[in-house]
Design a protein around this nucleic acid. Structure first.
Lengths: 207, 207, 207, 207
DNA sequence: AATGAATGAGTCTTCATTCAT
DNA sequence: CATGAATGAAGACTCATTCAT
C-alpha cells in the first residue's frame, strides 16, 4: 500500500485502487469470493497480479476495500434531510426506493461478498456499522419524533424500526431467491409496504 | 451411495448419513463452506474421508443433504393446521415463534450455508421451493380467506404476504449481523411485529 | 486363492476365477488397466470386491491371470501340425489368418493390458515366452527345414522369421492406430503379405 | 500457458517447456504414465509442481507435448529427399536405419507413452497423423513411381507399403519384448529385411 | 466363502502470495 | 511502481485393499 505526500501521486494511487476494486467487485459478483481468483481480478482490472498486492495486503482486504468504498458513496445525503421534513410515508417511500435501488445496483456484489461478511466477525461488524446501523438510527430518530408528535403510534420504536428495516432487507433476499410474485410486482411494492406499515391489515372501521 | 432394500441396512445408512451431515453442518457453521475441509468434517464425524464419499458424491452434496434434511423436519405440521382455525394474529405469532425458533437452532448452519445457496442457482431454487414458497403460499391462502371474510384488509395479498415473510427473514439477518436492540429485545418482537402488521403505525382514531 | 483337494470345489473355484477374469478382461479392454476399478470389475463379474481378493492377491494379478489363461487356449494346435505338411505359403497364410483372427478377438484386451506388459519386466517376459517365442520357433523350424530342402532361400533364418513375425505384429498395431487403407483392405492382406514375403518386390525376370 | 510476442520471452518459455517435457519423458519412461507423479516430474525438472501447470494444462498434455515435440524433430528431412533419388533398396535401408535409430533413442519414452496413445483416441489420431501416415505416404509415392517404371513389382502398393512399415514397427516391438535373436542380430537386420522385401523367400531360379 | 462398508494413503490440480527483474 | 513467472501448501477426490460380519 503505497504511502506518499505528493497529492498527484495520491490521486494516481486512489485511481489505481479504484480500478482494482471495480474489477474485484465485478469478479466477486460473478463468482463469489472464493471462486474469484486474483488472476481474473488482475485481468479484469488490466493490471498484473503483483500490482494488486502493491495496493492491498491480501485478497480479503479487497472485500474490506469494497465495503469501505461503498460506504463512502453511501452517506445519508441531503435528499434524506429533505425527506425528514416531509410526511413519514413519503420519507419511508423515499428510503425504500433509495435503499433498494442502491442495493440492487450492488446486489450481485453484496451477494458475492455476503458470505465473507457473515463469517468474518470483523467484516460483519464493519458492514453493520456502516450500512445497517446508520439507517436504523436515522429512521428511529425520525419515527420517535413523529410518535411524540402523535402522528404515529408505536409501543417500542427501536424494535418497530428494526421490523421495518428487516422488511426491506428480507424483501431483497426473497427477490434474490427468485420469488416470482415479488419479481413481477416489484414496482408495486412501495405502496404495498407502506399500506402495511402505516395502516396494518386490520380494517379501520370508520374509513 | 449404498442403495439397498434391507431395512436394517437402510437404517444404518441413514444413521451414517446423518452422522456425516451433523459433522458437516457443524464444520460449515464454524468455517463456512469453502474453509471447511473434508478432512475436518471426517474427523468431526469420526469417519474417514473416504467414507464421506461413500455417502455423498461431493462436498456440495453435503450442503444439499443438510438442506434436504432440514426440510424433512420442517413440514408445515398439524400445529399450523390448528393455528389456521385460530385468529390471524395468533396464527402469525405461532408461525413467527415456530419459524424463528427453528431457524435459530440452525442459524449457525444457515449462515454458513447461505453463501452457497445464494451463489448456486440449483441450491437457491431448492432452498426456495422447500423453505420459502410453502410458507408463503400457506400464509397467502389463510390471509386471502380472512380478507374475503372482511377480517383483514389488503389490496394485494400475495405481495403483502411477501412483505410479512420478508420481515421475518430480514429480522433474522439483522440479528445475525449483531444488531444490539434486536438481540436484547428479541422476546418482545412477536408483539411488536404483530402490532405493526395488524395495526400499522398510523394512529386509529376511535381506539 | 482358495486351495483344496475336493475336485468339485476345484471346479467351482476355477469357474469363479474365470468369471472374474472375464470381467477383468472386459473392463481392462474398455478402460485400460489403471482406469479400470476393482469396483467395476466386481460389478461386471457379479461378485463383490472382496471376492476378487479371495481369488487374486491384487489387481496386477488379474493381468497375469488373463495372460496365463489366454496362453492355455493358445497352444499351437493340431491345425498347425497339418499346415506343417502343406506348402510354406499355405502354412504362413494359415498362421497369419489364425493369429490375427485370434489376436483380433482379444485385441481390445491386449491393447488395454499392453501398457502393463511393456512396463513390467515380469509380465513382459511372461508374455514373450508364452505368445511370441513359441510361434517364432515353430516357424523357424519349419522354414529352416524348407531352406535345407531348397524350397526357400534365406541367409539368416532366425532373423528372417523375426522380420516376418514382426510384420504380423506391426500390421496389427497399424490397424489399431486406425490406418484407413489397412482397415479397408484387411481381407486382402494375406495375399499381399505372402506375395511380399515369397516373391519380394524385385521383378522376377522370367516369370 | 504464457503467450507473448517478445522473442526473448518466447525463448525462455520454450526452454522451460522443454525442461519440463524432458523431465516428463524421463519419468514416464521409468514409471509409465499413470505411475509417474507430477511431483516427481517437477523434481526431475527442477521446478515446482505449480510451474508445470503454468506451461501445461494437465498431466495428459505432457504426453501431447512430448509427442508433438518428437514430431518437430522428426520431419522427413533432406536426407530422405536424396534417398529418393537413390535406388529403392538404399532408400529403404536409409529409412530403416534412420527411423529405428531415432525411435530407439526415444524407445523408453515411447514404451511409457504408448499405452496412453493406444487408449486415448485423441492421442492415437495425433500420433498416427504425425508419425505413421507421413512415412507411409512418402514410401508409397516412391514405391509407386518405381513400380510404374518397372523397377519394382507390387499388386497393391498401399497395402504392400503397410506391410513393410508394419515390419519395422513390429521389429521394434519384438525388440522391446526382449527377443534375444533380434537384440543380438540387430545390426544385421537391415540386410535381412531388405533381402526379404526385395527378393522374397522363394528362390530365384536363374540367379 | 462372500460381502461391501470402511479405510487413508496418494494424486492431480488450484491459487494466493512473493520477489527478482 | 509494475510485472508475471515461480512457488508450494492445501484440498477435493479416488480407489486398491482390508476385515468384521
Amino acid at each position: 500500500m503505497p504511502a506518499t505526500q505528493d497529492p498527484i501521486r495520491e490521486q494516481l494511487v486512489a485511481a489505481r485502487r479504484n480500478q482494482i476494486l471495480d474489477a474485484a467487485a465485478k469478479v466477486f459478483a460473478e463468482k463469489g469470493f472464493h471462486r474469484a481468483t486474483t488472476k481474473e481480478i488482475a485481468q479484469v482490472a488490466g493490471v498484473s497480479e503483483g500490482t494488486i498486492y502493491n495496493y492491498f495486503a491480501n485478497k480479503g482486504d479487497l472485500v474490506i476495500g469494497i465495503i469501505t468504498r461503498l460506504a463512502k458513496f453511501d452517506q445519508l445525503d441531503s435528499e434524506f434531510a429533505q425527506a425528514f421534513q416531509s410526511d413519514a410515508r413519503g420519507l419511508l417511500t423515499a428510503i425504500f426506493r433509495d435503499r433498494t435501488g442502491r442495493i440492487e445496483q450492488n446486489m450481485e456484489m453484496v451477494r458475492a461478498v455476503l458470505p465473507e461478511i457473515l463469517i468474518s466477525p470483523e467484516l460483519r461488524e464493519r458492514f453493520y456499522q456502516q450500512f445497517v446501523l446508520p439507517i436504523a438510527e436515522f429512521i428511529e430518530k425520525n419515527v420517535q419524533a413523529r410518535v411524540e408528535m402523535g402522528y404515529l403510534e408505536a409501543a417500542n420504536v427501536p424494535l418497530t424500526v428494526r421490523a421495518v428495516q428487516g422488511m426491506f432487507v428480507g424483501l431483497l433476499i426473497l427477490r434474490v431467491l427468485g420469488d416470482k410474485p415479488l419479481q413481477a410486482g416489484w414496482d408495486d411494492m412501495p405502496e404495498v409496504v407502506m399500506a402495511l406499515i402505516f395502516d396494518g391489515l386490520r380494517p379501520r372501521d370508520g374509513e
